[in-house]
Design a protein around this nucleic acid. Structure first.
Lengths: 331, 331
DNA sequence: TTGTAGGCGTTATCAA
DNA sequence: TTGATAACGCCTACAA
C-alpha cells in the first residue's frame, strides 16, 4: 500500500504532475536541475510507479504471454528460459500458461491474456483447432508461434528443420543396415509430426526402401505412449529392428519396454529419440537423438516478437533453425 | 484493438455503465432479463473486458509473481506447475522470473513485480540478503517463501523437512557400513543447506561417528560443482567411501567424476543425491536419493498465498512437507 | 433493480 | 522547459 502517487511527488516537489511524469520516464525534455530535485523527492517519499495505471493510459503492459503445453515436459524449460532472458533484457515480464495440449485450455489462456492486454504472445499451439489464433490476429495482437506452425495460414513462427532432422535420423539408421524402422510419431495434427513423417519417408525413398504402413504409429507424446506402443508391437509380433521415436521422452518409454522384453540395444533394436533433452547423455543407455536448439527457439522467438511489437512489419516472418544428429549409444 | 468498451455496451443496450458492469461481473443484483439483454449486446459487439482498467480501479490484478532460481534446474518445473495449476483454478495468472541465485536479480524482479501490482508472490529466495523481502513486508504485499526460509524472520513459508531428509540419507549410508561420508553441501547461506548439515551431523552423532571437517564441502549447486569437488578430493587423496550430494544434479557430476577415475559405484563409493528429479531412475546408475514433493511445494504454497491474500491472517504460517528416502542402485 | 458521479494513477495533448 | 486538462476503461458509493 504505497499510497504515494505521482501527484504526491508533484505537490511536495512543487512541480506539476506532467513534469514529474517526465522525470520518472526519463523524458529528455526536462531541466537537469528539475530532474534532480524531483528524483530526490520521489526517492525520499518512497514513490513506486503504478504500472497498471501507466498501462491503462499508454496501452502498453510490458508483459507478454507464453503459452506452452507443459513446463514439466523437459523440452520446454529451456525454451521458456530463452524467452525470459530476452524479455527481461527488453523490459518485458512473461505470464506463463500450460495447456496440456488441450485446445480449450489454450483458448482460455489466450482469452485471459487478451483481457490482461499483453503486448504480445509466444505460443506453442495445440493445433487441434486454430480459431483462437485467428481471433488473436483479428485483434491485431502480435504473436509468434514456437515449434509448430500452420501450413496454409500465414502466421509468424519460429520452428526447427524437422524434415531434415527426421531425415538424418532415419538415414543414419538405414546406413547402419536397418530396413524395418518403426516410427513412433507424434499426433499428426502437429506440424512437427507431419514434417518428421515427411523426413522419414524421404529417407526411405532415397534409399529404395518400401514404406511399410504397419511400421507407422502416431499420437505419441509421453513416455507411457512409447512404452505402450512397443508392448503392443511386440505382442502382435510386429517385425522391426529399429525405432525412431517422436521425442526423447517417448524413446525412454520405448527403451523401458524393450528392456523388459529382454531385447538388447542397440544390437537387437536400435533406438533414436528427438529433442536432445538434458541427461539423455547420462542414461543407462546414452541416447542417440536429434538436437533441437531449444533455448534459441525461445530467445529468437522473443526477439522476433519484440520486432513485431515495435516495428510495423507486415510480411509474415518465418524462422527455421537447424537440427543436428547426436550419435551416442542407443543406435 | 477491440475498441468496444463497457461504455459502448451500455449505450447500445440502453442501460447504464454500472448495470453493464454488474452483469459482466455476475453481480447477483441484476434483473435476469436485463442480464440476458446486456450479455447479448456484449456478445454481439465482441466486447472484451479490459482487466488493466479493472485492476486500476479495484486494486487487484489477479496476477501473482513467481520468483525462482532457474526454470532449467530440474527441481523447478514441477514446483512452477503446481503453482500454476492452483493459480489458474483460483483465477490468477503467474509472472515467472529467474534469478540465477543472484540477489540483484531477485531485487529487480521483486521491484518490477511490485510496480506491476501483483496480488502476491511466491519466492524461492536467494538468501544472500533479504532487504528486498523486508521491503515487500513493509508494503504489505502478501508473499510465501518456497523451499527456503529465514530462521529469525517471521515470514510465511513452505519447505520440506531437510533435517530429516539429510538424516535419513546419512544414516542409510552409515547402516551400510560407511564411516567416511563426503558431504557436498549447497551454499550455507541457504536454509536448506544449513538444515541438511544439521541432519548429517545428527546422524553422525547418533551413530558415534566423529565429524571430520575435511569431509565437509559447501557451495555446490550445479553438476559442475559436484564434478569439480570430486576431482579435487581425489587429487588431494581425500579418504572417503560415500558421497552425500546436495542435489541430484550435483550427484550427477559426482558420478561422472568418479567414473572417470575408475571408481565403481556403489562398491568403491556409494552416492546419494537429493530432490528425486525426473529420470534419476533411468540413469546409467539409478540414483538413490531423497524425494522432495516438488509439485506440492508449488500447489500448497499457492494455496497458502491465496489464503494470505483473501483472508486477513496475521500469524505467520509455516508448512513443512515430508521428505522420503528413495533407495535405488547408487548406494 | 438501476442510474449518476467521481475517481483509480498515469500519460497525451496542447498551450504557455 | 513546464503546466493544465483531459482522457484511459472500469468499479464503487451513493442515490433514485
Amino acid at each position: 500500500m504505497s499510497h504515494i502517487t505521482l501527484d504526491d511527488v508533484a505537490k511536495v516537489s512543487g512541480f506539476s504532475k506532467s513534469t514529474v511524469s517526465r522525470v520518472l520516464r526519463n523524458d529528455p525534455n526536462v531541466n537537469p536541475i528539475t530532474k534532480e530535485k524531483v528524483e530526490q523527492v520521489a526517492q525520499r517519499l518512497g514513490y513506486i510507479p503504478n504500472i497498471v495505471a501507466r498501462s491503462l493510459r499508454s496501452k502498453k503492459t510490458t508483459t507478454i504471454g507464453v503459452v506452452i503445453a507443459d513446463i514439466c515436459n523437459p523440452f520446454f524449460p529451456s525454451v521458456v528460459r530463452g524467452v525470459e532472458d530476452v524479455a527481461r533484457e527488453k523490459g518485458y515480464s512473461i505470464i506463463l500458461c500450460n495447456t496440456d495440449e488441450k485446445y480449450e485450455r489454450e483458448k482460455e489462456a489466450l482469452n485471459t491474456l487478451i483481457q490482461k492486454r499483453v503486448d504480445g504472445l509466444l505460443i506453442s499451439p495445440v493445433q487441434k483447432k486454430f480459431d483462437d489464433l485467428l481471433e488473436l490476429r483479428r485483434q491485431k495482437i502480435p504473436f509468434v508461434l514456437i515449434g509448430r506452425h500452420f501450413d496454409p495460414l500465414e502466421m509468424d513462427h519460429i520452428v526447427t528443420d524437422d524434415i531434415r532432422g527426421a531425415f538424418m535420423a532415419t538415414e543414419y539408421l538405414i546406413k547402419k543396415g536397418h530396413k524395418k524402422i518403426l516410427f513412433i510419431n507424434g499426433p499428426l495434427y502437429t506440424s512437427c509430426a507431419r514434417e518428421r513423417m515427411a523426413g522419414y519417408k524421404k529417407a526411405l525413398v532415397e534409399n529404395n526402401i518400401k514404406l511399410d504402413t504397419k511400421l507407422l504409429k502416431e499420437g505419441a507424446l509421453k513416455m507411457e505412449d512409447g512404452y505402450r506402443v512397443i508392448k503392443k508391437a511386440i505382442s502382435s509380433k510386429l517385425d522391426f529392428t529399429a525405432v525412431f521415436a517422436f521425442s526423447d521422452l517417448v524413446a525412454f518409454g520405448v527403451i523401458k519396454a524393450l528392456k523388459e522384453q529382454g531385447r538388447k540395444m542397440p544390437d537387437d533394436v536400435a533406438v533414436v529419440g528427438y529433442d536432445n533433452i538434458d541427461f539423455g547423455f547420462s542414461l543407462e543407455l546414452p541416447l542417440t537423438t536429434v538436437h533441437i536448439p531449444k533455448y534459441e527457439l525461445g530467445s529468437e522467438g522473443m526477439k522476433l516478437l519484440h520486432r513485431k511489437i515495435n516495428e510495423k512489419i507486415n510480411e509474415t516472418q518465418k524462422i527455421v533453425l537447424d537440427t543436428k544428429l547426436i550419435i551416442r549409444d542407443s543406435a
